[in-house]
Design a protein around this nucleic acid. Structure first.
Lengths: 102, 102
DNA sequence: TACATTCATCGTAAAATTACGATAAGGGAC
DNA sequence: GTCCCTTATCGTAATTTTACGATGAATGTA
């Protein structure tokens, strides 16, 4: 027997959808640690992040993608490596939204 | 073949663990909407929240439990019903932490 | 007493996330 | 060219989350 779960649409503004997506991105310890590390070590490489996390390279890369997709970080290719940094606009937007929203 | 996934421990302070848990709680549209609704309608009943969400009562109750468990809301039993309100201390802590952390 | 109302919890199916090894893609060095 | 180095992506297993109907517990009412 196959039972399909209904897809739900919620009544959120576009801004609140973005806020929720950012909250979700922050809501995993590995990603929280990545953002913390990036704020202490701007422009660092993926390998540096892998070194400080108890996770395989592939998993870290996956978490980086989540952070990229919500615009919290951006990576730039430098030779064979990729260096990441926090996207200040997104972070400012997030902080402002949190301070005004609740 | 059975492959066990390793349990990971992350290097976060207790405060950052709490922050991450709160982010995760906010990181679902239904729960975001619940918090929004509660900030507009303090002390409202579970039924009122169920009415504005596109979800079954059991599901809403489950989301309320998530918010309760992180201390974002608290419920008080009033006769046969339960009225909920936002926990201001937690919310203040969260906002302060966000504004200072990133 | 019985019955209705409200809501949390249980059991479970579906969906999404997390994690890893393997692989591929794109440079630099030689 | 070949050989490393770095990192993203693929495939997939394990885990967690989400969602719902059913049930139960607590309260109020007739």
């Amino acid at each position: 027997m196959v039972i399909k779960q209904a897809v739900k649409t919620y009544n959120l503004t576009t801004e609140d959808e973005r806020l929720t997506a950012l909250m979700k991105a922050f809501g995993h310890p590995a990603r929280m640690q990545i953002v913390r590390f990036l704020s202490d070590h701007p422009q660092c490489f993926t390998g540096d992040i892998v070194d400080v996390l108890p996770l395989a390279q592939a998993t870290v890369s996956q978490h980086l993608k989540v952070l990229r997709d919500v615009g919290l970080i951006c990576g730039s290719i430098e030779g064979p490596a990729t260096s990441y940094c926090i996207c200040d606009e997104t972070l400012s937007w997030f902080k402002k939204k949190v301070s005004l929203s609740f």
